[in-house]
Amino acid sequence: MIKLNVNGRAATVDADPDTPLLWVLREHLGLTGTKYGCGIAACGACTVHVDGGAVRSCSFPVGEAKDRKITTIEGLSHNRSHPVQKAWIAEQVPQCGYCQSGMIMAVAALLAEKPRPTDADIDAAITNICRCGTYQRIRKAIHVAAGFSQ
């Protein structure tokens, strides 16, 4: 049994420590906002926070999440009030939406470290893939979110 702290709540799961955190979030805890895209840490759809840092949960063994604080898209805010969520709505960023929970979590982690990122900072940090190609709106919304955060 592995004890976890997910979105501020304690959870105990019966899983092999090598199981990717993504599987535990979706299958054991029913937190399906986090998506599976590639399974090889290449697309970013599965991005969550562990102790505030962006982590691609398809490549993060649940055993390493013990005693650490996990935040998923469901726990980013209780009422969509996080600056990134507000900017995403204001700019109507998503198209199909599949990549967007990972995108929002990656951007939230960037802004926590770099509150006013330049375009170069965004290029270096936001490498998530969007099959719908919403990259221009994503970039714009990141700058909008940075403004909301001030």
Binding site: I40, G53, A54, S59, V107, I126
Partner: peptide, 30 residues
Amino acid sequence: NVTRGPADRGAPGLHCSTCHQSSNQAASGV
């Protein structure tokens, strides 16, 4: 586009630890 970053641990927001954990990952091959 992974970069070195200011402390040799990746860029702010995309650290090495975003994908690389403390052991080889059989499920992802990372």
